[in-house]
Design a protein around this nucleic acid. Structure first.
Lengths: 252, 252
DNA sequence: CGAGCTCTTGACACCAATCAATCCGGGTGG
DNA sequence: CCACCCGGATTGATTGGTGTCAAGAGCTCG
């Protein structure tokens, strides 16, 4: 019944092809671990299969959901990259986060009951869509799933430390790169060779810096031999050196 | 069985007296609404009563929990004020948040399974302590409680917008004051007359500003007639004017 | 009443934003 | 195939907001 763990696509390779309309359980979905590991009864697992909806592909620049839309579902990234963006009353955009395969978008919409931000794909992206009423009802019957949801929410709380701290520009950029590498590694990708599919402006906006500052710091890090950077292809040459620069950014 | 809604203490008055060791259900506990409103069976309600533990009073400056301690429980503030503080490897402290009566501390410890910060009381403070394993087990039987926990976590995610944005110092301070007033009002206190029990340094640290900057901006806001401030007693004279200054700080 | 805070106010320095110019890469059309 | 074009990215010069340093005022508590 459980399908074999699919190959992780190389993040630098082309996005995965559309795998048809068949709804299959996919291990990249954020809840797989909770379900497979816990040895649940077939009925519960079947319920989870049924409520999962594979959506996509979205092309780069498309909206998954928009601010103020009623909250219906959370989205687990299967492949690709998403950013969430909040727009203030003056029209200023603020990138709230980037979401990699295996990560979940939309959790901050539970409380307000509408999405407080836009979700925009940055490359061709596939999702697993979970109706929130359905998955929370199921969670009541599957303690492991409930626990997984609690942990996901709590994890995202801790993720804010990069933005929340008052850090020098260099610390921010170093922490950003380090964090990205670690999150990719956690999902089975290379943690040292990665592609920055988001623009420099998106990175700068996310880090609350000017694009010029980000650019300057990237070149400085390259001159110091910590990274190799060609366009949007990044290689981390000295992970511990980068970590040292980012040391003041509290780890989760 | 449900006790009458107790009087909210005036935030400027002395802290409430110790009400004895009797474990009573208290409506200031964050989960009361979920339980009372949902009309649960007596057994479930009894379970909730049993797992609630009234702790305190803590005197100002005492630790409720410390960083790296194993995560056991979450704490709902009954009366008083708490700050959470993260300490980075270099020893720099960062105030993560202030928690008013009715709010819940410790949610960011679920994922790492240890507290990622210290919780320090800023005045005499009483808590309801909820064992997390117990309350999440109970939540599986009480969908309303589960929902309440999801909403609490999601709400706290949205609360980070004050810190996460890149805002001018004046915006930050105005948003801070506005936010405090609204949260107090939401708990039944006055939203315009309040006491800043935390030091200016704590405020500045929380807002990622220098204490001097906070001081300067307070005096500026006073000169503009937006607030009245005498020591730690604050009155918001022009709520909409303050809101206007804070407008760029996205509301939740 | 004095000691030790916290808080306020002022002078100066510095980091990052802004403004401006140039460079680069990818797509388009001739 | 190459010239052109355009958005994104880099690099340089200048400005400004906020941090830092320093001094003084006010408050609390013993």
């Amino acid at each position: 019944m459980p399908t074999p763990r699919p190959q992780r696509p190389d993040p630098r390779a082309n996005p995965i092809a559309d795998d048809g309309t068949e709804v299959r359980f996919c291990s990249t979905c954020a809840f797989s671990g909770a379900c497979i590991d816990a040895g649940y009864d077939k009925i519960a697992l079947r319920d989870l299969h049924v409520l999962v909806e594979h959506v996509g592909p979205f092309r780069a620049g498309e909206h998954v959901f928009r601010s103020r839309e009623p909250f219906k579902a959370i989205y687990a990234v299967r492949a690709g990259l998403v950013k969430t963006v909040a727009v203030d009353p003056e029209g200023n955009e603020q990138v709230l986060g980037f979401y990699l395969p295996g990560e979940v978008v939309g959790l901050n919409a539970i409380y307000p009951e509408h999405y407080p931000c836009d979700a925009v794909t940055l490359e061709t992206t596939h999702f697993c869509r979970f109706s929130f009423p359905a998955i929370s009802a199921l969670a009541a019957r599957m303690p492991g799933l409930q626990q997984q949801l609690f942990r996901l929410l709590s994890k995202e709380l801790g993720m804010t430390s990069l933005l929340a701290g008052d850090h020098a520009a260099e610390e921010r950029v170093a922490a950003f790169v380090t964090d990205l590498g670690e999150r990719l590694a956690a999902q089975g990708f290379s943690g040292t060779r990665l592609r920055l599919s988001m623009s420099r402006l998106d990175i700068a906006n996310y880090l609350r810096l000017a694009a010029e500052t980000v650019s300057r710091i990237f070149t400085r890090l390259r001159d110091q031999g910590l990274i190799a950077l060609e366009g949007r292809d990044l290689e981390i040459l000295d992970p511990s050196g980068l970590r040292a620069l980012a040391r003041n950014v509290r780890d989760r």
